[in-house]
Design a protein around this nucleic acid. Structure first.
Lengths: 209, 209
DNA sequence: TTAGCTGTCAAACGGTAGTTAGGCAAGGCG
DNA sequence: CGCCTTGCCTAACTACCGTTTGACAGCTAA
């Protein structure tokens, strides 16, 4: 009785290789076929195990979905915060927003299966499954709102559009890049440069003369 | 034998009321729950008939999806062309693009069930079901490419980003507005003004002094 | 060696999905 | 009147899905 080894301390918690494999393949299949259209048998096949074995690692299909969505948004949040918060204290809000855009794009495009699954599926899952993610998403939205409102207070942001509209438009546009970005057409850094330029200054030429 | 009346000339073709109702409810359900997660029994219920009766109007669930997607994209295409082509011959490309943006947004937001279903689902349907739509989508993309390339040739469009990137970014951003636009927060016309301003001139302030 | 745990499998179960078959009421038309 | 078409319904069929159960090989520790 006293020999209680923590019931699965290091192995059964999260870092099993097949467990990760299942998550990865699930994200890929969710992304391309949708959540409901993806069968656990397909996921298992892709992960190299049998359908029933999935239940050794997950309690249900919905739990897999939950983890895939969590991972997708967390990757982006981490990438954004890391870049924004490593800027010098006297950075302009333009610089901070640029760092945020690069972080968001990096997260989106380097973990496309998780982030695209997020973008595509989130609007279609039952309210119960959304509950937990709603908080995280709200916090991320607030983070951007603070960036934009600070920029607005400093006079760096345009004043004839609501910051909520700006945030929704920009984040939505950035999210959708994962659906069409093609790394074969140019480097990631160049892509970020183009997108940032469009977001900051628009698609038209401006007579600065 | 010779009394062959065209087998369902005016009635059975497309304009049955219940048939339209099925399409409408299917679009709404596809939008909110996804294609695979939507049951024909749910669609039938919402349309006020029984599941089996759907097969009097449609050959399969996939045929319903096909018509929903068709309708979604056609609404937008028509709205855009109508607005762009009713401009005077000497309109600037800026004016034409603005008209296109308004048309696209109008189509997206006034038939949200059809257009959102399109945005959300298109990436998740089998290649076979995409075949027919691919052509239409390609033509629509070409239409915008011509707008942008003409604007570029006239020096109205920024030159440091590819026109393909500009089109994908702008159309993607416009498409996504249907997921967050809230008519309660302001008039459609004001919304169009804000979006167009952001797309044209970006989110930052510009010192014109 | 033996006991127990880990990770997997094969096989099944209940539920539900898309689809089909046959019937039935209403109405126009000869 | 009888007939045929239109539009819908009821009831079922088949397939497949998420999930559960019980067993089993391999390993570790005592």
């Amino acid at each position: 009785m006293t020999t209680k080894i923590p019931p699965g301390a290091a192995t059964s918690d999260a870092e099993s290789a097949t467990r990760e494999r299942v998550l990865l393949e699930a994200a890929r299949l969710f992304r391309h076929h949708g959540y409901a259209a993806t069968t656990l048998r397909e996921v298992a096949d892709a992960a190299g195990i049998k359908a029933g074995s999935i239940y050794y690692h997950f309690a249900s299909k919905e739990e897999i979905l939950g983890e895939v969505l969590d991972k997708g948004i967390q990757i982006v949040i981490d990438a954004v915060r890391q870049r924004v918060e490593s800027l010098p204290a006297d950075a302009t809000w333009r610089d901070r927003i640029a760092a945020g855009i690069e972080g968001h794009l990096w997260g989106m495009l380097h973990h496309g299966d998780f982030t695209s699954a997020n973008v595509r599926i989130y609007g279609q899952i039952p309210t119960s499954a959304k509950k937990r993610h709603r908080v995280v998403r709200r916090a991320y939205a607030d983070y951007w709102d603070r960036l934009f409102e600070s920029a607005l207070a400093r006079g760096e942001l345009r004043q004839d559009a609501g910051t909520a509209v700006i945030r929704l438009f920009v984040i939505g546009a950035l999210n959708w890049t994962v659906e069409w970005y093609d790394p074969k057409r140019g480097s990631f850094q160049d892509f970020v440069r183009q997108i940032t330029a469009i977001v900051f200054d628009g698609i038209l030429t401006h007579d600065k003369a």
